[in-house]
Design a protein around this nucleic acid. Sequence first.
DNA 1: CGCTATGTTGATTCTTCTCAAGTGCCGTGG
DNA 2: CCACGGCACTTGAGAAGAATCAACATAGCG
Lengths: 223, 223
Amino acid sequence: MQKSEHDCIKLVPLFDHLPDEDVDKIEAIITHKHYAAGESLFLDGDDLDTLMIVANGQVKVSKIAANGREQLLYLLQTGDFDGEGALFQDKTHTSSAVALIPTAVCQISRKNFQKLLSQSPSISMNLINEFGQRISSLEKRTTEAATESVEARIGSYLVETGASLDKDTFKLPIKKKDLAIYLGTTPETVSRKLTDFESKGWISQGPQKQIKLLDKDALVLLD
Amino acid sequence: MQKSEHDCIKLVPLFDHLPDEDVDKIEAIITHKHYAAGESLFLDGDDLDTLMIVANGQVKVSKIAANGREQLLYLLQTGDFDGEGALFQDKTHTSSAVALIPTAVCQISRKNFQKLLSQSPSISMNLINEFGQRISSLEKRTTEAATESVEARIGSYLVETGASLDKDTFKLPIKKKDLAIYLGTTPETVSRKLTDFESKGWISQGPQKQIKLLDKDALVLLD
DNA sequence: CGCTATGTTGATTCTTCTCAAGTGCCGTGG
DNA sequence: CCACGGCACTTGAGAAGAATCAACATAGCG
């Protein structure tokens, strides 16, 4: 077993602060898999019977609405996991996932994961906690999508992305086309609003999706 | 202790299928509270240190967006619970709750609930499962809010509400004003679209928020 | 060095919000 | 029991935001 394969356990907040014996237990039931850029991890409708943790890379999780339009739900980074909530029922995926760059994932089968949870209360606690945060973040997004203008959503996205990277100058982690999908708008509108923000002196755009935040307050206060 | 007070434990899917001894444990740490219609259960920013279960009644949970507009997140019915995901961290509520009709709730303090979880793995499992379903439903709503037209959202809402009540003729469970907030639109638009649906023969509206679904396919296929 | 996908810019159209006025319903209090 | 006041709802006209369609520019990749 290589070093990198241990990493996914150490990387996931889910398995943080666990005694060594728990880590060993987890090691034993994990399987590893690699995906090339563009490769699909699962599709809407696939059987859902494993918990999937991104050890390294970037995964786009999206869902197709009734009218055929795509909605980007999550961008899973190193350390993030997916397996929805249906880990305890016989369900199918309700979304699709594609690797954006070469990606390594660790997987645990539902059966093993259930056993693990029943043995280690602290993992359950971590999981409940993690789910809770995800619920909060989805609630926030639902609220924003339903009540705020596209302009305001783009503004918040820029500031939040900067904050999560802890930088005021950064490279957009996804293509503008995908960003448009994520924010529930179109590439044209994203392009226009960014130019608009730049002309107002709130950001500056460099080559290669470089963004520099100049006036975060203005971006957050948009309506 | 009255009969009704036992009920909240029996009512909540969270505490389903538990051995009697677990039920007794839970009984011991629950407190009960009653709210009149219009009374507030908690406000955005309040300390969050209890899990709250609706034993009887109806509670509106909403959130105020940055621009001041309200977004209805959940309509908690008998058996539903709230306490966000932050049950394990020192956090504050990120939403507000108001009783719509006289409502009885059962509460468990964070501390006691944590103890309970660490002792009973099956409660943890139920909770994780419940959270998972909530995540799925929020993902669905985020997708709909971001990609579908107001018209389509109203159509889906009507069909889903009918399905969950198992009837084609039903009374809207909330005021149209709140429905508008829930769907991220305005009362005017809801009113217009409903008359529009009626003129197209897809629904018929009676007095007192009565709705009769006549062509569910048409309502679902809106774009 | 092209080729294809991504991104930009412009013109137009459409949906939905906003503002405004008016109707009807229901509970309170006289 | 009726009158009043408030709140929900409806309907109309106008404005604004964002989507769509179309042409063009650019960048990444073989």
